[in-house]
Simulated scan of single mutants.
Amino acid sequence: MTRFAIFDGHNDLLSRLWFEGDTSGESFFTGRKGDISLAACRAGGFAGGFFAIWVPGEPQDAPDPMATLRAFPPVDTAKAHRITMEQAAILIRMAANHPDAFRLCRSVAEIETARAEGAIAAILHVEGCEGIGAGLDELHVLHAAGLRSLGPVWSRDNIFGHGVPFNFPASPDTGPGLTDAGKRLVAECDRLGVLLDLAHLNEAGFWDVAKVSGKPLVSTHSAAHALCTATRNLTDRQLDAMAETGGLCGLNFGVGFLREDGVKNPDMPVEQMIRHLDHLIARLGETGVALGSDFDGTTIPGWMKSAADLPLLTAAMERAGYGTALIERLCWGNWMDLLRRTIG
């Protein structure tokens, strides 16, 4: 067993399984290649996290369409609705077929029970709401199925708002924010107890959420713009606003958001992640920072071959002088505290 249990703010397993045609998610349990599998999670202490639904644009024949594009056109609504439901069904089947190993959780109590019983605790998350219409009917269906977290946009525009593109070096202030439909979505998520994820919103959208929502401001997988001037990262002004609401940032493991040069080069030392953690803690406090790996959705450091290597990160935290209590908060406790205040 690893020393620290980890609750992770973001992974893209569901879209990867969908790309691979694994509609049951069975390969997760039988040793799939990739950042996360049951074996890798157990080896590394990955005990739960946010499992994201993500609808790809065109072409669909490659799992990393970001390899050649920085700006993304809108996706077809009917296609997005279909793929959203197909990926949600994968997670539901995984939990139904392997309840001893994998649980779909709707509350912190269910997460803690899953951890105590040795099962991975999964929060169903939607990353970009192209599969949800302006009337929000799909939101209510997904909520009934277990949805407890969503990002109104991915890094492209939709009916709810404007996503921040993948640019470097650049400001996240890239255009308009939420639409009227987006503001209605935010208000309804507050009412339902669905966490709002700011990770792919541009800066105007961030401030719109801050005005409309009464909940803590949260980014499930981002890093510090002061250390890496990628548009996907959060400025100090944004971090300070998050701190004022008791919000939280999960540290993204993507090297393109961590390296000072913004390059997706996996040759990056673990100490660069510690620098970002130090900066985030300085702005958000020790209770406002957690982990948000983006496993199976980005280029992670070369020394981290999979979730099995998460102890290398916690060992680096210890070398940096982080005490056991702080590491436990960063790895698990801060997400639990935040979720108690958002989903219950």
Rank of each mutant, 00 (worst) to 15 (best):
L17K: 02
G161P: 04
D12G: 02
V270M: 11
V126N: 02
S37Y: 08
K211V: 13
L124P: 00
A181L: 10
R106G: 12
R3D: 15
A88F: 08
W18H: 15
F160K: 06
N97R: 15
D190M: 08
C331P: 04
E127I: 02
F72V: 13
D35I: 00
E138H: 04
T314P: 04
G254Q: 03
L195I: 06
A145G: 02
T231Y: 02
L38M: 11
L339C: 05
D100Q: 15
F19E: 02
Q60M: 12
L142E: 00
P99H: 13
W332I: 04
G250C: 04
A122G: 03
L280C: 11
E130R: 03
G128N: 08
P59I: 14
G344K: 11
A181H: 15
F295P: 01
W303Q: 07
D137I: 13
T235F: 07
V126L: 11
H98Q: 12
D12H: 03
G246T: 10
K215N: 10
P172E: 09
V108G: 07
N334G: 11
R70Q: 14
G246C: 10
A204N: 07
I6A: 06
A39N: 07
G151A: 15
G344W: 06
S15I: 05
V218C: 08
Q272M: 15
M94D: 07
D296F: 06
L310W: 06
V186K: 02
A320G: 10
E130L: 05
G250A: 08
R106Y: 04
K264Y: 10
A47E: 05
L192Q: 07
L104Q: 02
M85N: 13
C105I: 07
T287K: 09
G246Q: 09
A204L: 08
T324H: 13
D267P: 00
W303Y: 14
A71E: 11
A52E: 02
H140W: 07
M66F: 13
L248H: 09
D157V: 08
A170P: 03
F102A: 09
G254V: 01
L196C: 05
R103D: 03
A78M: 12
K33S: 12
P165W: 09
D64N: 15
H225E: 06
L234H: 09
I53T: 14
E244K: 15
A5R: 13
